[in-house]
């Protein structure tokens, strides 16, 4: 299909560009455009509150140009009748279950018009499986930027942190995330609608983010698919202490395999379990129940520093980048494999 800023007619599939994404709807009249959630502008609605709703064409457009789908002859044959499209759209008013990649406004509009949900935008995002997931690492500088971060909730969180090490980590990992998002998606953190979910994890209806810190290092990831990242520096601790840790953190299967893991293995396994937990968005971290051997995880040794592990839902390759506050370059790492 092609898109054109033509006059809208009853039953038309319409869209409007908001930032780097398109927002879709079904036009029934100037007073009735049915959409799955409002256009993602300004303050974003949390995914759990997004509903199929009706608006007028001005609000849908938000000052931008509305485009109408110009269907090919075959598409015209395939589509539902405008009357049936209207019935379907109206019947779904109030519906929730929004999911950025699997049940978004485009899926909704396509389902109403063609009887089958689909999203070219989501498919494009998911098709990046072959493209490496970029994760940024950065060492916390001596002097941190003296400016408030967005959203306000994060700034408050940082101000309320009493531990000075954690305070610096939080301020810098947010700075790294901000630069990463700007670099990769040409947008600011303010447009992502970031908020904390019930498990204390930062979520956005537009991207999946993950943060980690250890000592004076931070790691940040922002992708179109669920991601978890963890970094651990070499700690101290005696061998007896490490044995006790291993006993507690390993699954039954792992205990059989790693009878007495050395420190490097223990740390590597730990980062793998944490990044998996972060990606899967669980409510409670139980390392003894997470298998470190999950194939979606990639683990790297950051020379002289420690381990970094990254898990993406697709299990795609990972590219670690080092940001020193100015330039970004590839990090000097080697991949670590499960024994």
């Amino acid at each position: 299909m092609r898109w054109w800023p033509a006059a809208c007619r009853f039953g038309d599939l319409v869209r409007v560009q908001t930032g780097s994404v398109w927002h879709y709807g079904v036009y029934l009249s100037d007073d009735e455009v049915i959409q799955f959630g409002p256009p993602p502008r300004g303050e974003l609605t949390p995914p759990g509150q997004i509903r199929v709703c009706s608006t007028n064409i001005e609000d849908f457009a938000g000052g931008d140009t509305v485009e109408v789908a110009l269907l090919s002859p075959l598409e015209k044959l395939r589509r539902l009748s405008p009357k049936r499209t209207a019935e379907k759209a109206r019947a779904r008013l109030g519906e929730g279950g929004y999911d950025l990649l699997h049940n978004n406004c485009e899926h909704f509009a396509m389902d109403c018009v063609f009887g089958r949900p689909s999203s070219g935008q989501a498919e494009a995002a998911l098709s990046v499986k072959g493209r490496p997931a970029e994760v940024w690492l950065s060492r916390i500088p001596e002097t941190l930027p003296d400016r408030a971060v967005v959203p306000d909730e994060r700034e408050r969180e940082i101000l309320e942190t009493r531990d000075p090490v954690l305070k610096r980590q939080r301020r810098w990992d947010w700075e790294v995330l901000s630069r990463l998002v700007q670099s990769r998606f040409s947008t600011g953190l303010g447009s992502l609608g970031l908020e904390k979910n019930q498990h204390g994890k930062w979520v956005s209806p537009r991207l999946f983010v993950s943060l980690a810190h250890s000592g004076d290092w931070v790691a940040a990831a922002a992708l179109e698919e669920p991601v978890g990242v963890d970094i651990e520096l070499w700690p101290g601790g005696d061998r007896a202490g490490r044995k006790a840790l291993s006993a507690r953190m390993l699954t039954r299967k792992e205990r059989g395999r790693y009878a007495s893991p050395e420190l490097p293995e223990t740390l590597a396994l730990w980062t793998r379990k944490e990044c998996l937990f972060k990606r899967m968005d669980g409510s409670s971290f139980e390392p003894g129940k997470i298998e470190a051997g999950d194939p979606t995880v990639r683990t790297f040794v950051l020379a002289g520093v420690g381990f970094v592990s990254v898990s993406t839902r697709s299990g795609r390759p990972v590219r670690l980048r080092l940001w020193d506050g100015g330039e970004v370059r590839d990090a000097d790492v080697r991949e670590w494999s499960m024994p």
């Binding site: 531990d163 000075p164 954690l166 971290f285």
Partner: peptide, 25 residues
């Protein structure tokens, strides 16, 4: 120094800066 008064309201992460590994210890 960071947390002169440690009482039952002291937060393990935000006030004491415990990492997940430290929790294990």
């Amino acid at each position: 120094e960071r947390c002169p008064v440690m009482d039952e309201n002291t937060r393990i992460l935000e006030d004491l800066g415990f990492t997940s590994v430290a929790m294990l210890y």
